[in-house]
């Protein structure tokens, strides 16, 4: 029952303030929320899902139980030193390495059960280029597409499109041995993208490239993502991870040490500010104990000491005896070194 208060001098409203609706509001709300529920389910379904993933090579445990999910349209990074288990994980994802334990789902398919269907849907760029030196640029693309049943005019059109997209249309007839490192890498990206895969798996896509070539590759990865693909990549370049990845995991010794967006990881593990303290000759231990007496978590980084913390660090450590202090913004590299330690790998 709607009651109107009519004041003197005011015209009463001609219509109900809330017009009666059909279908009724309650029904519309129900439909709307149901749609939302369904849509949200689609949107939040991971396109890659790894559950309790293990890989043993005989006695050696390369991957020791990792879980992660990658959402559609994401660039997801795996960051870790050499031997962390990144390549092994990616080989399991692309079904060229049997899974010791655990499960991987890509686009809803169990990788162990339907490896071929998975490989139909993904593009892989391995660390080595795997380009065919006996074929030219164009032939490399077309030959690869044929394995995905893309042949004839469709393959030709796609190859032309890819060469244009990756800025290599002038080099279609070039031999592989005449290409620079950056061009080879772009060609492997073009090859992987020839088949318009839903998921691209890239193992260290910019290793061994100069900064120009690396930036070019990054630009193209963004464009691939814009075209709707999901990208899972491994890297040990911090800047690459920080620039490219929406979310990432940091791995070491076959385990995931931490995960999140690059910014969150930096805030969580290295604070917003890093103080780099260079003690003058011989005063290292003294400076260190001074900092520790202030309750700081001191880490060695080369010849310097670093302390992470919030902005207040600037005031607190502004004046330290026998040491030069410099402040800088914390980076992913700090997170990485804090989590994975300083010891060298591959040795």
């Amino acid at each position: 029952m709607i009651r109107y208060t009519v004041r003197v001098g005011e015209t009463p409203p001609l219509k109900d303030p809330i017009p009666p609706s059909f279908p009724p509001l309650r029904f519309r709300l129900f439909v709307w929320s149901a749609c939302n529920f369904l849509m949200s389910d689609i949107q939040t379904n991971p396109i890659i899902k790894a559950v309790g993933l293990h890989k043993d090579y005989g006695e050696f445990h390369a991957v020791k139980g990792i879980d992660f999910e990658v959402m559609p349209g994401e660039i997801f990074g795996m960051l870790g030193p050499n031997g962390a288990g990144k390549t092994t994980t990616m080989r399991m994802l692309s079904s060229v390495s049997p899974i010791t334990a655990g499960q991987i789902f890509i686009d809803g398919l169990n990788v162990a059960e339907e490896p071929r269907k998975v490989r139909d849907r993904i593009g892989v760029v391995a660390q080595h280029d795997g380009l065919d030196p006996d074929l030219n640029v164009h032939q490399n693309l077309v030959t690869y597409a044929r394995y995905f049943s893309i042949t004839g005019k469709a393959a030709e059109d796609r190859a032309r499109e890819m060469l244009e997209f990756f800025g290599m249309d002038q080099r279609a007839d070039s031999g592989i041995h005449t290409l620079s490192g950056g061009m080879k890498r772009r060609l492997t990206l073009a090859r992987a993208f020839m088949t318009r895969p839903k998921v691209l798996i890239l193992d260290e896509p910019s290793t061994g490239l100069d900064p120009q070539a690396r930036n070019r590759v990054w630009e193209q990865l963004f464009r691939i993502r814009e075209a709707g693909a999901t990208i899972l990549m491994s890297t040990h370049y911090m800047e690459e991870a920080a620039q490219l990845c929406d979310r990432l995991v940091i791995m070491d010794y076959g385990k995931i040490l931490s995960r999140g967006t690059p910014d969150d990881l930096v805030m969580e593990h290295a604070g917003s500010l890093t103080a780099v303290i260079r003690p003058t000759n011989g005063s290292g231990p003294a400076v260190r104990s001074k900092l520790e007496s202030m309750g700081k978590d001191v880490r060695e980084r080369g010849a310097a000491l670093v302390v992470h913390g919030p902005e207040e660090l600037r005031k607190e450590l502004g004046q330290i005896d026998n040491a030069a202090v410099r402040f800088r913004v914390s980076t992913l590299e700090d997170v990485f070194l804090n989590l994975t330690g300083r010891e060298l790998r591959d040795e």
Binding site: R119, V124, G130, F148
Partner: peptide, 14 residues
Amino acid sequence: NHKIFETMISAPVN
């Protein structure tokens, strides 16, 4: 040396 087999089996070739 050229890892072409690896490329092929990463594609849907058995």
